[in-house]
Amino acid sequence: MANTGSSRAVGVGRVLIAVYAVLALGATARSVVQVATKFDAAPVAYLLSGLAGLVYILATVALLGRGDAWYRVAWVTIAFEFVGVLTVGSLSLFDAALFPADTVWSYYGRGYVFIPLVLPVLGMLWLYRNRPSRVAAAA
């Protein structure tokens, strides 16, 4: 069936989206400063930080969006963040020079009170609970 109303921006999901919006703002703004002022110190880490910020923005929009296409975008972006925080978090433990402590994913998001580690898990649980087939069945 056509999914006209947003099935994800409801209930506690709104809080999830708000946290995503704050993280998107924080990560993006910070990476802009880093790329602008100390890009040479760790180009890979800071570019990845910028990419992470953009993906957080896309994830926020996808969670707000309506329909199946946005649902898939939400899955892809949130899964990307989860893989990112696990990969970069692990790498930062072993190669501190490549990933300085001040990127969004370093040390599993320690600089952001581990929100980048917890949020994708909550996001995927939320997406699973509000999957289109289930929402359609409930309607």
Binding site: G11, R14, V15, A18, V19, V22, G26
Partner: peptide, 21 residues
């Protein structure tokens, strides 16, 4: 815009974010 209880929690998220910032 969104008159629900969760908007009150969103206000809380904003205030906590400001404390950290």
């Amino acid at each position: 815009v969104d008159r629900s209880r969760w908007s009150t929690v969103v206000l809380a998220v904003a205030c906590f974010a400001i404390a950290v910032m």
